[in-house]
Structures are given as structure tokens and as C-alpha cells.
Design a binder for these strands. Structure first.
Lengths: 271, 271
DNA sequence: CCGTATTTGTTCGTATGTATT
DNA sequence: CAATACATACGAACAAATACG
């Protein structure tokens, strides 16, 4: 019938937060103070805090207190941009080859850096075998990188190539240099195979321990991560590569521009 | 140094789940059994359960027990599809006007139904004013719909139009009929304004109480929702409309097809 | 640098309520 | 109605992180 006490406490605090009475970044009363204010036990107050924490409204800092979460303005990653000029109807292209390479940050003045790739040769498991249309257990090359923007962790990215491509001569795939935006071009120059299309898949899930550590996320799964799969295909419709990227969901968004959409993708931010 | 006991218990159970020893849908031992097995108090065992719950690995059902979460195969929503034929290089078009209308479900044999729109005339707040490039407090028409697939809640969707469009003659925007895929065409026929491009934004956040109730989500924020903003622009680069859609993140994914990507977007599913 | 006070984190015990079988 | 299983609530004690003099 009536809500349990810890939810009533949470609801009361939630209302104060949404109304702005408790400002972002501001500190909440301590658990002992709240225990007196609501005439509840400390554990009940803590249950209310956990509720608000799971809603992403507050965060606790041991030894300091409980604070209202400040939303950061997110990194914007363009998954697709069609660069048709606004005033001319001629040549509705797909933005040239350049965009085929990777997910790109619409970084204004921000500096993106990537770690040296960690190369592995491994068996294709479920999703990887599925997307690359290989039989389970087929060998693939994986190139794993940590990506940073202005030094802060931005994404974890792993690209898988069928081992076939290496056997056919693309040996630099198994060397730990930064192919980066050049991987697709390298394959074209070396083997003559060209990526003519791709498919992105966007899902959300809880981070694993590795991801939580890299992105400095809480460890419990209360902050999710985006997982994007990008499968690239050659002219014959055969999968060339699969790139799996992971981004923390609390500070990232994706945009897709289709047709002559104005520029300036959320650069301004009002108070 | 060493992890707290509730996390060790959680880690042990997590390993059993990932290894498959505890199958999806299967029941975990009861809290009393776990209390004996790990020689901990029931509260500590429950802390371990909450940890696993936030990671999305288990769910509890009062009176029944604790169960390993079964992942459903997600609804797939295509945000963008470029239908260039595979074998010809001529005319790399954007797939025609048809795709401009809306986010479309790649529903194979599934039946999509929408509720009658709830129309409101309201002031544009922060995001809405921002995207439609209106000054704060300008009037907008909002058309809100509940969308279902095979009768199960699929998304909550609200489209905002500048009031200016109604004043200029598009009066059916404020009538509670299903314009649906015809809204863009209606604007073109009535006012001669044509949506020639759009921008999508994809973010993730905790659901609010309304959304949690509609999608039957837990109420604490442990299952997030996708929020997509689609802003449509006319030939002059002026925003025509803003559609905000919300989808539960545990049973939805988005796909983007660029260039001649093969069909069959994840219809098969291996055990 | 050290010690103390403050604040959240962990763990236990216990009792009672609510949902399901 | 009874048994089972999770949910709520209280009280207590100690640990760990942080801030401050």
C-alpha cells in the first residue's frame, strides 16, 4: 500500500534535488543527520542513499559525504555523417572514404591519443564468429587499443580480422604499429579488398571489471557502458573486420547526421 | 587489501554463472542456504545478491527465490539504412524519402501498434528549445505516443513541432489522429516545407517512474533506457521537429547500415 | 608527521512484513 | 492456512577513508 520508509526518504531527497534545492555537486546531510531528520535507523537511511545512487542522482565518497551528481557534458561520437553540401543537390555522396575508418570524435580542440595496439591471435567465439561469418574456432587477429581524449580514458576498442587476410599477405595486421585510420586503406593496397559498407550495432550493458577499472567506473554496475559493433564488408558482401568499442554511458553520446543537417553538433551548452 | 566478504561471495557466484554452472533462468540457492555455505550472515549474503543484481546477472522474486537473468534477444531498431544496390557504383543515394519518417523496427512477422497520440501545447524547455532553435518559453505542439510490438511495450515517443507550423496551416498537428509515418509528408503537402535531413542523438540514462511503470522495469534504476533525439531540418537548415524516443536498454539495440551491407540484421541466434 | 574527529563501508544479530507456493 | 523466500527495519560494533589541527 504505502511505500517503504527508505523509499519515502529517497523520494523526498529526490524532489529536493530535482527542484534544485540541492544543487549539483552539493553535499547532502550526513547519514547521522538524516537519521535524526527522518527518525529512521542509519541502515534505512543508507538504503535510501543506495536507491538514489542507482538512479544516478547522488554519489558517496568515503570519509567525505554524499553529493549530488554533476552531469558532465558528454563526448560526442559521430557514427555516421553524410556531408552533402546544403545548397547543392548534386552528388549525394556518403562523405567519402574517410569516414569509413572508424568512429570519430567530434572533438573541438581536444586531443585524441591511442595506446600501442595489443595484438592477439585467437579463436573466434560466438559474436565474433557470427559477425565475421566464420565457423566457431576459426582463427582471427585481434588488435586491442585504449583510446584517450585529452588524456582521459575514452574508449576500449578491439578490431578482429579473419586470419585469412594475414595469410593472403596483409602481414602488418599482426604487427604492433598504429594502423589506425589506415587499416582499411592498407587492406585495399595490399590485397585489393575494399570496404564498401558497414553495419553498426549499438547496445548497452554493465561494464566488466577491466572496463570499470580503465574508465574509473564504480565497479558495481550502476553506470553502464555502450558497446558498438562495426562490421565492415567488401564488395562481395563478405565481412572484412569487426570493431568492438566500449564507452562509458555517463559521459558519451552518439550522433548520426543524415542529409544536410546543420553543423555545430551540440557545442554550446546552456546553464 | 582483500575484498569484503559480500564481494567474494558475489565473485564466486558470478564465476559460476559465467561458467554456465548456473544456467540462465536457473535458481540460485536460497539466502539461508548461502548463509550456511559461505558462513556469513544473511545480510551479507543479501549484499552479495544486490551486487549481482546491479551487474544485471541475477534477479530476485519475492516468495520464489533468486534466479540467473535470461537475456532476451533484443528488438532491433534501424536508425539509418542506406539501400544502395550492392553491385552498382552509380548513384549512392540515401535510400529515398521513406526512411526519413521514423525509427523503424526490423520486425520480422512482428506487429507494431501505437496508442492514440496525446496532444499537448506547451512551452519549450531546455533541450527542446535548444534542438528546435526556439527561445525558452516558445510554444510547441507535442504529440506523445506509446508504442507496442506484439502487444508488449516497445517505446515511448514524443514529437515536438514549433507552434509556428500550426499557425501557418498545419492544423492536423493538433488533432489526435495517427499521422505516424505521414507527418513529414503532411507538412510537405500542406506548407511545402520538406525535411531534407536530420540528426540523431543517442544517450542512456535511468528511467523515470513513468517509464519504469510502462516498460515494467524494476523502479530502481538498475536497468537503463536509451533516449534518442531525432531533429529534422528543412531545406533552409531550420529545425522542423524533434522526436524523443525512449527504449528499455535491456531488450533493444540499434543498427545503422551504410553502403551495401548485407541484409539479415541478426535474425539468427545461436544457443 | 601524527593523532583525532568525522563520514561512509562492512558485518553481524534480530524481528517483522509481504509475496508466493 | 501453513511453509517458504525475499523485503524492510532497527540496533550495534568495528573498519577504512578523509579532513584537520
Amino acid at each position: 500500500m504505502t511505500d517503504p520508509m527508505y523509499r519515502q526518504i529517497a523520494e523526498d531527497l529526490r524532489a529536493r534535488i530535482e527542484s534544485g534545492a540541492l544543487a549539483p555537486g552539493g553535499q547532502l546531510p550526513t547519514e547521522l543527520e538524516l537519521r535524526e531528520r527522518y527518525e529512521a535507523s542509519r541502515n534505512t537511511v543508507r538504503d535510501a542513499m543506495k536507491w538514489l545512487m542507482n538512479l544516478g542522482l547522488v554519489e558517496t565518497r568515503p570519509g567525505q559525504g554524499t553529493f549530488v551528481v554533476e552531469k558532465v557534458d558528454p563526448f560526442t561520437t559521430a557514427l555516421f555523417t553524410d556531408v552533402t553540401p546544403l545548397s547543392s543537390d548534386q552528388e549525394t555522396g556518403l562523405g567519402g572514404e574517410g569516414i569509413a575508418y572508424a568512429v570519430e570524435v567530434s572533438a573541438q580542440g581536444r586531443r585524441a591519443t591511442d595506446s600501442v595496439p595489443r595484438i592477439e591471435i585467437q579463436q573466434a567465439n560466438g559474436v565474433i564468429a557470427d559477425e565475421l561469418r566464420l565457423s566457431e574456432g576459426s582463427m582471427v587477429v585481434s588488435r586491442h587499443q585504449q583510446r584517450f581524449i585529452d588524456g582521459t580514458p575514452y574508449s576500449l576498442q578491439t578490431t578482429f580480422y579473419p586470419m585469412r587476410l594475414v595469410e593472403e599477405g596483409a602481414v602488418r595486421l599482426i604487427q604492433a604499429e598504429n594502423l589506425q585510420a589506415g587499416a582499411i586503406r592498407y587492406l585495399e593496397e595490399t590485397l585489393g579488398v575494399k570496404q564498401v559498407g558497414w553495419r553498426d550495432r549499438i547496445t548497452v550493458r554493465a561494464p566488466d571489471a577491466t572496463e570499470a577499472a580503465f574508465f574509473r567506473l564504480p565497479g558495481d554496475g550502476r553506470i553502464a557502458v555502450f558497446e558498438t559493433l562495426r562490421t565492415g564488408y567488401d564488395r562481395s558482401g563478405q565481412p572484412l573486420r569487426l570493431t568492438i568499442s566500449v564507452y562509458p554511458a555517463d559521459r558519451n553520446q552518439f550522433v548520426i547526421n543524415v542529409g544536410p543537417a546543420p553543423d555545430d553538433p551540440s557545442s554550446e551548452r546552456g546553464g
